[in-house]
């Protein structure tokens, strides 16, 4: 999967939980889920579970701990896909 494909899949996953549409439109690797997209932290769990379902992977809590921005999420998904 290319970097662009991965970003676009993540973008589709986070969209229902985003509360700052302006930040969402300019989403990049540097976008933070909480401080930029204003995703409610209880919904960050939904993002994690949706990522698990979409890519058919399991993310441990120690990995989840770092998944607060697009770049970290991409890194963890790539790592988990490589392990498959």
């Amino acid at each position: 999967m290319t970097k662009e494909e991965l970003i676009s899949k993540l973008k589709a996953i986070v969209e229902p939980y985003v509360q700052d549409e302006t930040a969402f439109k300019s989403l990049s690797e540097d976008t933070d889920f909480i401080s930029d997209l204003k995703i409610n932290s209880a919904n960050l769990v939904d993002v994690i579970l949706d990522v698990e379902d979409e890519f058919d992977i399991r993310i441990e809590n120690d990995d989840m701990e770092k998944m607060t921005n697009v770049k970290a999420a991409m890194g963890i998904v790539k790592e988990k896909l490589a392990e498959k």
């Binding site: 769990v45 809590n61 989840m64 701990e65 998944m67």
Partner: peptide, 8 residues
């Protein structure tokens, strides 16, 4: 220190 792991 910011982190996301509510179980902790």
């Amino acid at each position: 220190h910011r982190f996301f792991n509510p179980k902790k």
